[in-house]
Design a protein around this nucleic acid. Structure first.
Length: 898
DNA sequence: TAGCAGACTTAGTATCGTGCAC
DNA sequence: GTGCACGATACTAAGTCTGCTA
C-alpha cells in the first residue's frame, strides 16, 4: 500500500490507468485514497504491545492545580474574559502573518490562470462561494465591532482587505465574486508599496495598542507577566481556568522519576552480558556446526554426501570470508580515531583537502539506426539533443510518473525547448509521440546486461571499482577519507515526490563549467576533463564540501561531500547526540515553561507554546515556510493550516482529541488522533476561530521565531533536537522495558526491533509494503508448518526411544533417548526462531526502521545494550552502519546512559 | 528584521549483490 | 544453474537551520 499522496488530478492519456487521488490543498482528506495510516500504525503498535513513550501525558493536574482559587474565577469574569479574548483575537495583526500573507498574495498573482482554474475544480465544492461571502461578512463585522481602528486590528488577508476602505472593500468584494470558488485566502488585492507602509503603521499601532491592552489587563488581573499569570491563574477565561483536575500531564514528575531511575544505575542482565560475550566467529562457527549436526540427524546419508561434495567449496568460502574479515579488521585497526584527538571550535573544518574532482557521467550514446521514434504513426529521425531527452521519457514509460499530467506537460514543455525549429514544427502533441521502440531497446539492453557472463560482470565490476578507487576518496588532513557521492548527477527527468509541480522537467547535464571545486591551496588541484575548465576553484576550509554545482530545477546547490564514516560527518553526528543529551537535563523546565505559556496573554506566546508541545509530544518537524508552487504542498508543525486538524471534544472515549491529517516531508501522510491537555485544546479552538481552512494555524509563529526562543532556553537547541532527543530516549526506555535477559539472542533482537519500531512510529517513518511481502509471508508460514510437523515427529520418536530404553535398559537405547531429546530441543528453538521472524516481518511491513537508526538514535544506546545483553553488534548494525558509528563503538561501554 | 542563499541533515526509493532453495 | 528474496548500497529529493544582506 502506498502511503504517499502522490496521484494527480490529471486526465490520463497514456499508460495504465491509476486511481485518481485528489491532490489539491483544500480537498477533504477523506476523499484521498489510502487508509488512515496513522490508525494502522497505532493498531500495529497495540498489536505488538509497544510501550508508548512515557513523556507524561497524565498528571497535569499536579501542575495546574497549583493555581489557587482558579475554580472560583469561573463566576463574574465575563467582562474580563472578553477583554482577554479580544487580546487573543486571531485578527490582531501578526508578525509572521503580515509577511507571509503578503507574500502569498504576490505568489497568487503570479500564478498562472489555467492552473488556478484547474485548482478551482478541485477545491471543496460549490459552497465555497457562500463561505467566502459569509467570511467577508464576518470580517467586516469584526472590523466594525472591535473598534474604530478595526482595520488595524485585522491581520493577514483580512488586514489588507479591511484597510482598503469602503469603496475599495466593495471592489474587493466584487473581485471575490469573480474569484469565487478559487478557494482560501491566497487571492486578490494589490500589495504594492502602500501595503508595506500600511504594515509598518499597523505594527507600530499594534505595539502601542498591545502595550495599552497589556497594561490594562495587568491592572485588572493584578499580574505583571505571563509567568505570574500562570501561577495565579487570575484573569483567565473560565474555560481555561476550570481545566484543573481534568487531565494530567505529569511530565515533570515522570522526568524526575526517570532521572531517579537512571541515577539508581539499575543494570538489567549484567550477569548475562559478561557471560555471553563471545567472539562473533566462534558463535558463527558454533551455529554452523549446529546446523550441520541438525542436518546430519535429520538425513544423515544425504547430508554426508552433500557435505563431502561441498567441502571444498565451503573451505573456499571460509577462506574468502576470513580474508574479508581480516581486511575489515585491518581497516578498523587503521581507522583514524579522530574522536581521540582534541577538537577545535574555530569553524575551520580542515587544513588539508585534496581530491580528484567529481566523476562525470558518460556522455550520451546515440540510439542504433534501427531504433525509431514515431510521431503520429510515422518514423521521425531526431536530432541528437532531442533524441537524448526522448530516451529519458522512454526509459520511464512503464513508470507511474509518465501517467501524470503534470509530468507529461513539464516534460513536453522542456523537451520542445531543446528541439530544433524543424522538430518544433512537427512535434506538437505528446500523445502523438510513440516512444515504445526506444523503451523496448532499453529494456532489452537491461536484460542483456543482466545476462552477462560471470567474467563479463566481474570485468564491469573491476572497472567500477577502479573509478571508485580513483575518484571515491580524498585526503583530509593527511588521512584517506571516503567520499559520499563522487559522481555528478546524470541528466534526466526530475522525479519530485508527491504532487510536485515540477515533476517531469528536464534535469540538465552537469558540465565541468558548472562545477565549483573546493580544496586546499597547497594541494594538487584537480584537472578538469580535457577541453573543459572548472567554473571556479575555491579554497574555503570553513565548509565541508569538495565540489558543488547549481541544479536547474529548483536553482539550488548540490554538493559532493564525504561519506558518513568520515571524520567531518562523524564529529557532527556525535555533537548532535550530545546536544540532544543536554536537552535531557533541561527538558522538564522547558515543558513547564511552555505549559505556563499556554495561558499567556500574548497570542504569539500561546501559539509558540502549543507548537512546541506538538513538536515535543508528537515529534513533529519544525515546518519551515516554503515557496508556494515551487514544491509539493507539504507542511510541518509551524506551517500547519486549519484544514490539517480537526478538534473533537470527545472521541472514542477520549476527551480533547486533535485529529491530525496532513502531508509531511516527502509527501508522507501524517495521520494521528491525539488526546491533548484541555488548555491546548482550548487554545487550538482559539487559533482556529474565524479562520478559513487554508489559513495558518499558527499565524504568529515561524520556525525562526521558535528556534530563536529555543536558543535562549538552551545553547544549540532547535526544534529538530526534540526529535533526536525523544527518539533516543524512547529507544532507551523501550529497551529497558522490553528486554528480557533470559531471552535468546533472537528474542532480544525482536525486543530491539520493537523498540526501534516504537521510534519509527513516533517519527512517522513509513515505507510502502514490499511488493513481495505477501508471498514471502506465505513462504515463511509454509516453513513454520513444516517445522511443526518435524517437531511432532521428533516428539513421537522420542517417546518411542524412551519406551525402548524402558524395555532394554542398555547404553545404546539411553544414548538414543538423549539424541532424540536434543533433536527435539533444537527443533523447538528453530520453530521459535521462525515464529519470531514472522512476527517481526509482519510488524515491520509498513515501517522503515533504517531512518531512525541512522539519524535519530544515539548509537551508543544500542551499543551499550548489545554489550550489556551479549548481543553481537553485527546483529543490529551492518558493515556500513558500523563504519558510520565507529566513534560510538570505540567509546561506549555497557553502562552508557543517554 | 525579513528574505534569501548556502550548507548541511534527513528521507524514501531504485538498484545492486548475495545467499538460498529448488 | 537459475531464479527469487532480501539486505545493502546508491541516489537524490526534501527537509532544517545559519548567517549574510538590504
Amino acid at each position: 500500500m502506498r502511503i504517499r499522496q502522490e496521484e494527480t488530478d490529471s486526465t490520463l492519456h497514456q499508460g495504465s490507468s491509476v486511481g485518481l487521488k485528489d491532490s489539491s490543498r483544500s480537498k477533504s482528506k477523506s476523499q484521498r485514497e489510502g487508509p488512515a495510516v496513522g490508525q494502522q500504525l497505532s493498531e500495529t503498535e497495540d498489536k505488538v504491545g509497544l510501550l508508548k513513550p512515557s513523556r507524561g501525558d497524565d498528571g497535569v493536574a499536579a501542575f495546574l492545580s497549583g493555581e489557587p482559587g482558579a475554580s472560583g474565577l469561573a463566576v463574574g469574569v465575563t467582562a474580563l474574559r472578553e477583554s482577554v479574548e479580544k487580546e487573543l483575537d486571531p485578527h490582531v495583526p501578526m508578525q509572521k502573518g503580515d509577511a507571509r500573507n503578503l507574500k502569498r498574495k504576490k505568489e497568487t498573482e503570479k500564478k498562472q490562470e489555467p492552473k488556478k482554474q484547474r485548482e478551482n475544480l478541485l477545491r471543496k465544492g460549490g459552497s465555497k462561494k457562500d463561505k467566502l461571502e459569509e467570511s467577508l461578512g464576518n470580517v467586516m463585522e469584526d472590523i466594525g465591532e472591535e473598534d474604530g481602528a478595526g482595520e488595524d486590528k485585522n491581520c493577514g488577508v483580512r488586514q489588507s482587505e479591511g484597510k482598503q476602505g469602503s469603496s475599495s472593500t466593495q471592489g474587493k468584494a466584487d473581485e471575490r465574486e469573480k474569484q469565487k470558488g478559487r478557494g482560501e485566502k491566497r487571492k486578490k488585492v494589490k500589495i504594492e508599496g502602500e501595503e508595506k507602509e500600511g504594515r509598518k503603521k499597523i505594527k507600530k499601532e499594534k505595539k502601542v495598542e498591545e502595550q495599552q491592552e497589556l497594561e490594562r489587563l495587568g491592572e485588572e488581573l493584578g499580574v505583571g507577566d505571563a509567568g505570574k499569570e500562570g501561577e495565579g491563574g487570575k484573569g483567565l477565561k473560565e474555560e481555561e481556568v476550570d481545566e484543573q483536575g481534568d487531565k494530567g500531564w505529569g511530565q515533570i514528575q515522570s522526568m524526575k522519576a526517570e532521572e531517579k531511575e537512571v541515577g539508581s544505575g539499575e543494570v538489567l542482565g549484567k550477569k548475562q552480558s559478561t557471560k555471553d560475550k563471545k567472539p562473533k566467529e566462534k558463535k558463527k562457527e558454533k551455529g554452523k556446526k549446529d546446523k550441520e549436526k541438525s542436518q546430519e540427524e535429520e538425513t544423515p546419508k544425504k547430508t554426508q554426501k552433500r557435505k563431502s561434495k561441498d567441502e571444498g567449496e565451503e573451505k573456499n568460502n571460509k577462506k574468502v570470508k576470513k580474508e574479508e574479515k581480516g581486511k575489515e579488521k585491518k581497516e578498523t585497526e587503521n581507522k583514524w580515531k579522530w574522536w581521540e584527538e582534541e577538537k577545535t571550535n574555530d569553524g575551520v573544518k580542515w587544513k588539508q583537502l585534496e581530491h580528484k574532482g567529481p566523476y562525470f557521467v558518460p556522455l550520451y550514446e546515440p540510439l542504433p539506426d534501427d531504433v525509431q521514434f514515431y510521431y503520429d504513426g510515422k518514423p521521425l529521425k531526431l536530432s541528437l539533443a532531442t533524441e537524448e531527452i526522448a530516451t529519458f521519457y522512454a526509459k520511464m514509460l512503464d513508470h507511474e510518473y509518465t501517467t501524470k499530467e503534470i509530468f507529461q506537460n513539464n516534460f513536453f514543455n522542456d523537451w520542445r525547448k531543446e528541439m530544433t525549429p524543424q522538430e518544433q514544427e512537427i512535434i506538437k502533441q505528446l500523445d502523438k509521440c510513440d516512444f515504445r521502440e526506444i523503451h523496448k531497446y532499453f529494456v532489452d539492453k537491461n536484460e542483456a546486461r543482466k545476462a552477462l557472463s560471470k567474467e563479463e560482470k566481474q570485468k564491469l565490476k573491476e572497472e567500477a571499482d577502479k573509478i571508485q578507487e580513483e575518484y571515491g576518496y580524498c585526503i583530509l588532513d593527511g588521512h584517506r577519507e571516503k567520499i559520499g557521492n563522487f559522481k555528478t548527477e546524470p541528466p534526466g527527468l526530475f522525479r519530485g515526490r508527491g504532487d510536485h509541480p515540477k515533476m517531469g522537467m528536464l534535469k540538465k547535464r552537469i558540465m565541468p563549467e558548472d562545477v565549483i571545486i573546493n580544496c586546499s591551496k597547497d594541494s594538487k588541484i584537480p584537472e578538469p576533463p580535457v577541453g573543459h575548465k572548472w567554473k571556479e576553484v575555491r579554497f574555503d576550509n570553513t565548509v565541508t564540501w569538495l565540489a558543488s554545482w547549481t541544479e536547474n530545477i529548483q536553482n539550488s546547490l548540490k554538493y559532493i561531500m564525504l561519506n558518513p564514516s568520515s571524520k567531518l560527518k562523524g564529529e557532527k553526528d556525535w555533537q548532535k547526540f550530545e546536544v540532544a543529551r543536554k536537552l535531557k537535563d533541561v527538558v522538564h523546565k522547558i515543558r513547564a515553561q511552555y505549559q505556563a505559556d499556554w495561558k499567556s496573554k500574548e497570542m504569539k506566546k500561546r501559539q509558540r507554546a502549543v507548537a512546541l508541545y506538538f513538536i515535543d509530544k508528537l515529534a513533529l518537524r519544525a515546518g519551515n515556510e516554503k515557496e508556494e508552487g515551487e514544491t509539493a504542498d507539504t507542511v510541518g508543525c509551524c506551517s500547519l493550516r486549519v484544514e490539517h486538524i480537526k478538534l473533537h471534544s470527545k472521541l472514542d472515549g477520549q476527551e480533547h482529541v486533535v485529529e491530525f491529517d496532513f502531508l509531511g516531508k516527502d509527501s508522507i501522510r501524517y495521520y494521528n488522533k491525539v488526546s491533548v491537555e484541555k488548555p491546548v485544546f482550548k487554545n487550538l479552538q482559539l487559533f482556529m476561530k474565524n479562520k478559513d481552512p487554508g489559513d495558518d494555524l499558527f499565524d504568529r509563529l515561524s520556525t525562526a521565531v521558535l528556534n530563536k526562543h529555543l536558543q535562549k532556553l538552551m545553547n544549540g537547541l532547535t526544534a529538530k533536537v526534540f526529535r533526536t532527543y525523544n527518539a533516543s530516549i524512547t529507544l532507551q526506555e523501550q529497551l529497558k522495558a522490553l528486554t528480557n535477559p533470559e531471552d535468546s539472542v533472537a528474542g532480544k533482537l525482536l525486543s530491539y526491533n520493537r523498540a526501534n519500531r516504537a521510534v519509527a512510529i513516533l517519527c512517522n517513518h513509513q515505507r510502502s509494503t514490499p511488493k513481495t511481502f505477501e508471498k514471502s509471508m506465505q513462504n515463511l508460514q509454509t516453513k513454520i508448518d513444516a517445522k511443526k510437523e518435524q517437531l511432532e515427529k521428533a516428539q513421537q520418536e522420542l517417546e518411542e526411544a524412551e519406551d525402548e530404553f524402558k524395555d532394554k535398559k542398555d547404553a545404546k537405547a539411553e544414548a538414543n533417548v538423549q539424541k532424540k531429546k536434543k533433536l527435539l530441543e533444537r527443533l523447538k528453538e528453530q520453530l521459535a526462531k521462525l515464529n519470531v521472524q514472522a512476527t517481526d516481518k509482519e510488524e515491520n511491513k509498513q515501517i522503515a526502521l533504517g531512518t531512525s537508526k541512522l539519524n535519530y538514535l544515539d548509537p551508543r544506546i544500542s551499543i551499550a545494550w548489545c554489550k550489556k545483553f551479549g548481543v553481537p553488534i553485527e546483529k543490529i548494525f551492518n558493515k556500513t552502519q558500523r563504519e558510520k558509528f565507529a566513534w560510538a563503538i570505540d567509546m561506549t561501554d555497557e553502562d552508557f546512559e543517554f
